[in-house]
């Protein structure tokens, strides 16, 4: 007797089954819009990044520039367009750094276990116990406000939660039978990590990347607002909020516009991650129906 004739609906473990929803399309479009602006900003922006275009500071929308002017009479629209570059690039670099540190240490801890896991986990917990903004303030205060220090500090702070997620994934997948089978075959740690565990962690890690990216934007904007992040005359959304916050009392929207842009970026990213995670869980619901 053979069961080879069984008909099984093809179900590839890829992302091919991801179906777009209206929310996903909307969130994706917003992100794409900002990405295009970031890439082609200098050609699109009507004025220079720090160019003063008007004698009138805090000019309202439509007067001076399309979105008004800021506290020095610079074009808000142009600074916004230059700012998206800085904001996205810094967020991307910090997130990549946090993943490089967090994923490496997290999976190493899950596979090597023992004292390595204990030591690294305790250090990470000590970092997590410290309020992250305070930690960043102290480090940047000590080493000075340069982009390198900023990016490394934020990357390190964010890497703690990436570490927790990677370690948990490594532990969960590390006890699966296919990993045991690889161990029984005599495979080394590197093979088990890169060929058995990592390919099965991509979906949760992608979701985590999205969340960390969002958090990174907020964190960097927060630091810029406190004056510890990007320095003038460079444009950055968080910095723009800080520069122009005084204008609020004069009825200027120069601080509100970059704030709204930060919100649009982070909310869209979150929506996209939510959609992705739901789709991933959808796969497991399907498996249950199969039985």
């Amino acid at each position: 007797m053979s069961d080879t004739s069984d008909i099984v609906a093809p179900r590839k473990p890829t992302f091919a089954g991801l179906r777009l929803t209206r929310t996903a399309i909307f969130a994706g479009s917003v992100l794409l819009f900002w990405l295009v602006l970031a890439l082609f900003g200098p050609w699109i922006a009507p004025h220079g990044e720090a160019e003063i275009i008007s004698g009138q500071t805090f000019a309202p929308i439509g007067e001076g520039g399309l979105l008004g002017t800021d506290k020095l009479g610079r074009d808000v629209l142009s600074r916004l367009i230059y700012g998206v570059r800085t904001t996205l690039l810094l967020a991307l670099v910090t997130t990549v750094i946090s993943f490089a540190i967090g994923v490496t240490l997290g999976f190493a801890a899950a596979i090597l276990k023992g004292w390595f896991d204990i030591v690294v986990s305790r250090i990470v917990e000590a970092f997590m116990a410290f309020p992250s903004t305070l930690l960043a303030l102290v480090v940047i205060g000590a080493f000075g406000t340069s982009i390198t220090v900023l990016v490394l500090t934020v990357g390190l702070v964010l890497s703690t939660s990436v570490f927790r997620v990677s370690r948990a994934l490594g532990y969960d997948i590390g006890v699966m039978d296919f990993v045991e089978a690889a161990r029984a075959r005599g495979e080394g740690t590197w093979w088990i990590l890169t060929r058995e565990i990592l390919p099965n962690s991509t979906a949760p890690l992608i979701a985590e990347f999205g969340l960390r990216f969002t958090f990174s934007i907020l964190f960097l904007s927060g630091l810029s607002f406190l004056g510890l992040g990007v320095q003038e005359p460079a444009a950055d959304w968080g910095l723009m909020v800080q520069e122009n916050v005084g204008g609020l009392f004069l009825g200027s929207s120069a601080a509100l516009i970059p704030a709204a842009c930060i919100a649009s970026l982070t909310v869209s990213m979150n929506l996209l991650v939510d959609w992705f995670q739901q789709r991933q869980q959808g796969e497991t619901v399907l498996e249950k129906i199969d039985q």
């Binding site: 029984a184 005599g186 060929r195 099965n200």
Partner: peptide
């Protein structure tokens, strides 16, 4: 301990697990 066994000994003795699902890497 299997880390101390020569490859020849590992080859001679293979194991098949109960749960067919979890014994195969779904991404391979």
């Amino acid at each position: 301990n299997l880390a101390d066994r020569p490859r020849e000994a590992l080859k001679d003795c293979q194991i098949v697990f109960q749960m067919a699902d979890t014994a195969l890497n779904p991404r391979h």
